[in-house]
Each structure stands twice: as structure tokens, then as C-alpha cells.
């Protein structure tokens, strides 16, 4: 039997403030195996992005357990989670989330630098060349189009060769043609590095490119 890269057991997430508490995830059980590509689909507000965040340790579950590569993310503090992501995960967001004060190559080099990679900038340059941005190395995010920014974000996520690649609606802010190109790049990178890919998407045609599609409805797996 293949070891799960990600294992979620009865995962719950409740967010609350003075106005009241909202149950976002209501007991999710899910295993993702090495090298698998999983598409998370569901209507807006169903909890799919929240689930992805819990998988990446970007937020912590209020119930249940999230294990990644055999480690309990719930038992880690903020800094251990950061180091875990640095060593094992890459994340791509819908809004790119590039650091506005850094150029493209600096953005891509940052996770490599944090991991202590000595040739961080050479590798960052190669990654940007791989996504077709060799001419944009020293441009700031504000000087690039949305599609170009997302390609930088892809290169940044893939540069440390992560075992797990998490993508939260990576084409959500892009037009159809650009989005399709980004998805080709994403799957290409995944194939190149052999990462496990979890992809949150609204688009059924994108989900269909995954090995498995998991549908979420009202905080539960449908």
C-alpha cells in the first residue's frame, strides 16, 4: 500500500468573531498519495480553499488531524510549520502573492535562500527561464501582467522541488487563454519534479486533468 503524503482525519475548522461562529469544515477525511494529482472542486464558500490552507499549514484546524509526510501539522508551532513548508511544500495562490518590493528573480530565489541553497539565484533564473520569463528577471511585480506574475509564482513554488505542490485557483484571476497556459505550466512542473499536486479549482475541465477529483459541498466531502 502506498504511504499517504497527506492524511486528513475528521478535520474541522470553525472561524468565529464577536458576530458569531461559522463552521467552515465539518469533518473531512482524505488521503493523498505520493505523486497523485487531486482536484478539489465545489461551489464558492464550500470550504475548498480553507482545506488547502490547512494542508499547507497556513492555518490550523480546530478539530481533527492533518498529517503531511507523516508529521502532525497541528502539533507544530508557526516557525516549525514555516520550516516544514520551506523544505517540502510549494504554494500557488489565485492572487499570485508576490512580494511587491522584490524583482521576479528575487521572488523566486527567496524560498531557496531561506533553505540555504548556495546557488539560489542561478536556480531561480533557470526556473524563470523554464516558465518563459527569461526577459523579465529584474522586473518588479507591478511591471508585469497578471499572467506573467502567476508564472513567477509558479516558478517560485516549484523552485525548491517540493514534494507537495498546493495551488489555490491559480487561473482564477486570468483570462481563458492565459489560464490554460498557466495550467500547462503547472502540470509540466509537476511532471518534471514528480510532486504531489493538490489543485483547488472551479473549472471542471481543469479538475478533469487531475488523477482524482474531490468535491466539497458545505464543508463536507460530497
Amino acid at each position: 500500500m502506498t504511504t499517504p503524503v497527506l492524511s486528513l482525519r475528521d478535520v474541522r475548522l470553525t472561524l468565529g468573531n464577536n458576530a458569531g461562529r461559522t463552521e467552515i469544515l465539518k469533518g473531512i477525511d482524505l488521503n493523498v498519495t505520493t505523486g497523485e494529482t487531486v482536484g478539489l472542486t465545489g461551489p464558492s464558500g464550500s470550504g475548498k480553499s480553507s482545506l488547502l490552507m490547512l494542508m499547507g499549514g497556513l492555518d490550523q484546524a480546530t478539530g481533527g488531524a492533518v498529517h503531511a509526510l507523516g508529521q502532525d501539522l497541528g502539533a507544530m508551532n508557526e516557525d516549525r510549520l514555516a520550516r516544514f513548508r520551506r523544505d517540502h511544500m510549494g504554494v500557488v495562490f489565485q492572487s499570485f502573492h508576490l512580494i511587491p518590493t522584490m524583482t521576479a528573480v528575487e521572488n523566486v530565489a527567496t524560498p531557496l535562500e531561506l533553505a540555504g541553497v548556495s546557488d539560489a539565484f542561478d536556480r531561480a533564473t533557470q526556473e524563470l527561464e523554464a516558465v518563459g520569463l527569461s526577459h523579465r528577471l529584474h522586473h518588479y511585480p507591478s511591471q508585469m501582467s497578471g499572467g506573467e506574475q502567476q508564472r513567477v509564482a509558479l516558478a517560485r513554488a516549484a523552485a525548491p522541488r517540493p514534494e507537495i505542490l498546493l495551488a489555490d485557483e491559480p487561473t482564477g484571476n486570468l483570462d481563458g487563454a492565459t489560464g490554460a497556459a498557466i495550467m500547462d505550466l503547472l502540470f509540466g512542473l509537476r511532471d518534471r519534479h514528480g510532486s504531489t499536486l493538490i489543485l483547488v479549482t472551479h473549472a471542471s475541465e481543469l479538475a478533469e486533468r487531475c488523477d482524482r477529483v474531490v468535491h466539497i459541498q458545505d464543508g463536507r466531502l460530497a
Binding site: G56, E78, A82, R85, R86, H97, I99, P100, P111
Partner: peptide
């Protein structure tokens, strides 16, 4: 606000709070 955003990205990429 800008620093909060930057810190969130850096944490995502693996930076510790001390760093």
C-alpha cells in the same frame, strides 16, 4: 498592512518569525 502581507508570504515560503 504592507508588512503584515509581506510577512504572510515569507512565512508561506518558509521564513521563521525571528528571521
Amino acid at each position: 498592512r504592507a508588512r503584515t502581507y509581506e510577512a504572510a508570504i515569507l512565512k508561506t515560503l518558509g521564513a521563521t518569525r525571528a528571521g
